[in-house]
Design a protein around this nucleic acid. Sequence first.
DNA 1: AGCTTTTCATGAACCGGATTCATAATCCGA
DNA 2: TCGGATTATGAATCCGGTTCATGAAAAGCT
Lengths: 260, 260
Amino acid sequence: MATLARRRREFDQREQLILDTTQELIQRDGLLNLQMTRLAEACDYAVGTLYQHFAKKEDLLLALTTRNFLSRMELFDRVPAWPGPTRERLLALCLADVLVLDQYPEMFRLAQFVFTDVVWGAASAERRQEALTACQPIGDVVDDIVNEALARGDLQPGALSPMPMTLGSWALTTGMHSLVHTEGVLDLYGIRRPYRLLFHHLNHLLNGQGWQPLMAPVDEASISAQLERLCRDVFDTKVPACLLPVDPDTESEPSKEAIP
Amino acid sequence: MATLARRRREFDQREQLILDTTQELIQRDGLLNLQMTRLAEACDYAVGTLYQHFAKKEDLLLALTTRNFLSRMELFDRVPAWPGPTRERLLALCLADVLVLDQYPEMFRLAQFVFTDVVWGAASAERRQEALTACQPIGDVVDDIVNEALARGDLQPGALSPMPMTLGSWALTTGMHSLVHTEGVLDLYGIRRPYRLLFHHLNHLLNGQGWQPLMAPVDEASISAQLERLCRDVFDTKVPACLLPVDPDTESEPSKEAIP
DNA sequence: AGCTTTTCATGAACCGGATTCATAATCCGA
DNA sequence: TCGGATTATGAATCCGGTTCATGAAAAGCT
């Protein structure tokens, strides 16, 4: 039976290789130019072999999305481990999203495409289930944060249960990603640092929900401080350019000086 | 030269016919099953004729999206004409979006698909420009609302200019549409009436931004009253089912009684 | 080991659907 | 009515995802 296990392991390994290669090709040539034949070539396997793993191209894409999501979970998982205020913990979840997707925009593009019903509908039921299962844990993290917020009195026990409560932040973050990736639209309205604005609005929203401690006033300085703090304490990283305040001096150059 | 004009008119008419038919086919069979050959058949024209109007399938889809957006503008246009408080005017914009997209979910699906870079990138530059141009007017409506809000003192002149200010509501609404259309995700977390929650969160957000008159408390009764008011006064329609409060009695049946 | 059976990789062939283009039809001015 | 210009047509082409007959390798058996 040991052989069977080895076989299985090798199979799984090959699947990862295929996914890695898919990721690379997408990163290099774009989703549009991903072709099964080329992918097979790049993997050094025959086309038929790919189909041993993924019954349809859609399944491949969905599987990659799921894997990406799971790897994002690693960042999310730092949040429950961090002992900060519940309000900032929730913001940290949104921040995690921004950190990853700012670095790998193709990840969002792919996800957006895959969740389109054209693709989602064509994918196999198993892969879909797999994707949904991958989403589950994040729900628990959110539940915990809200429950703790209620327990500590950071949040008044209002009408809404945890998930509906945080649906606002979630939708706001998701929506901002969509807008950022809808080519041309934000430029049209002269919006420069959408993700920084996201945190303005998230704080307004949380203030509106009465999530203690309120941020007042919501201004550039407080936002900068908050982002600094979260990036450092939770994710052990610098604040990325997309979250810096708009600097009137440097237009196209990314500004080099850190926030004081 | 009169002939030329007639020709032109007939050509435009035919383009509208093609778009109408496309809409119908998508509505009936779904985006996935839209085929140029079938479309040609349904239009009673040859395939080649379609290509006289749209160089690629992507162009056809983008054009349809643009047209849909323009027709949504008709609803948006009722908003500046309505003399209510600025805060409710902004909410009315979001409501317009919900009213249309709840009735024609395929519209959103299509738009979502088209703005995916796979499609957007494949469409021709002219059609893309056309789409962006169609988005422009909504910006003006928003600007006007914010400016009037500032003038009336409904909004404190903070750091943010009009569009960044309302980006929050916009992203929140967009994000909620995305979540609603991401099959299975909201079910996963037991969320029943996402669009009703949207208005909870929009009001929280606006409260947080200090947009007068504040809604306090944000509860089911106030939300119901607000939605009733806006649907009636601005759009002259009943509150659609997706915006009614969750009724614990009727689970699968849409509740028949109106809100008191 | 030698033989049989099972499993799996292969890639040429297939097929569906978007796009093209040579041809036919139609229009229009003279 | 005629001839050149314009436009419509749909069969043919092309492209890329998917299948499947073939043979090779591994596993099982004696």
